[in-house]
Design a protein around this nucleic acid. Sequence first.
DNA 1: CCAGACTGATTGACGTGTCAATTATGCCCA
DNA 2: TGGGCATAATTGACACGTCAATCAGTCTGG
Lengths: 162, 162
Amino acid sequence: MTENTPQRRKRQLPTAEQLRIWRDFIETAEALRSELSSRLQSESSLSPGDYAVLLALSEAEGWRMRSSELAAGIGWERSRLSHHLGRMERRALIRREECAADNRGAEVVLTPTGAEAFRGATVPHLRAVRELFVDALTPGQLAAAGEVAATLRAHLGSSRKL
Amino acid sequence: MTENTPQRRKRQLPTAEQLRIWRDFIETAEALRSELSSRLQSESSLSPGDYAVLLALSEAEGWRMRSSELAAGIGWERSRLSHHLGRMERRALIRREECAADNRGAEVVLTPTGAEAFRGATVPHLRAVRELFVDALTPGQLAAAGEVAATLRAHLGSSRKL
DNA sequence: CCAGACTGATTGACGTGTCAATTATGCCCA
DNA sequence: TGGGCATAATTGACACGTCAATCAGTCTGG
């Protein structure tokens, strides 16, 4: 009877083994993120945030987007995007223009500098994803990872509303 | 023959499906981290960083540790710890004392305030881990997640040295 | 029309992280 | 013994994130 340990009276708490897996999972994801980020940085002077913004813009009509749409597209809060765009604009990766259709709005435009930086970053970045993630796992493990992620995300989505 | 797409000439790049799994994986981990962090924050006014520090200290001899050991124990750079301890000290969660054995060194001491905050945070935090992670997965998925994490970490460890 | 609510976007304050430089002390040996 | 190197820890500068407040422009109902 492991289910009546004092620490787990009122509501079930994770067992030591479950907690170990949790920590392993979250720390590994963090380590991966950090390694990818540092490679991206050293190979192209872009942060993962820069990369996400440039990717979205490079796929947009005329290399330009309304900033809200950009935020929605990459799943960022608008304030976060605003701060980030400020930093990217200083580095000339993007430019902000007023929006003709709505005077409140702003359009974010990919500059040639930004496009060039993105072009140079993409292959090494994808290669790193392959090397650090895809190649590390067997096809079965990769599929399992995908399934676990999808399951967790679905569960998260439903419990966030409570 | 999917293996000779133009984009994957010189060195194999991830396929669209592999990339999708990668993004799902990393974004899910990030979403989990963020949800956990916000629950911890609202339930106990502690950040995950605070929690990690308090956990280590609460398990230490006499609620005190040399700051390098603390850094090593939770896997942080010393500079990061130093900044964080400064913030925690302002909130009276910890105290810094000079070290008798080595005059360069500092000892970090858990205060009663810190111990109390940690006590109040631990059960809700573990409950959240259970709810958001453990309960979302089948036992098989949980085991698979653990295996994937271990494999990725091992691979990361060996390729970081290159 | 026009007051008030709504929306797009920015700002400021502050916590968090990294990197490089700095300070202070300990230690070793020529 | 004292010059030089290693080590403990902190600091400063700056990127990144979140939250709450703000500002300006749009829309809507009376």
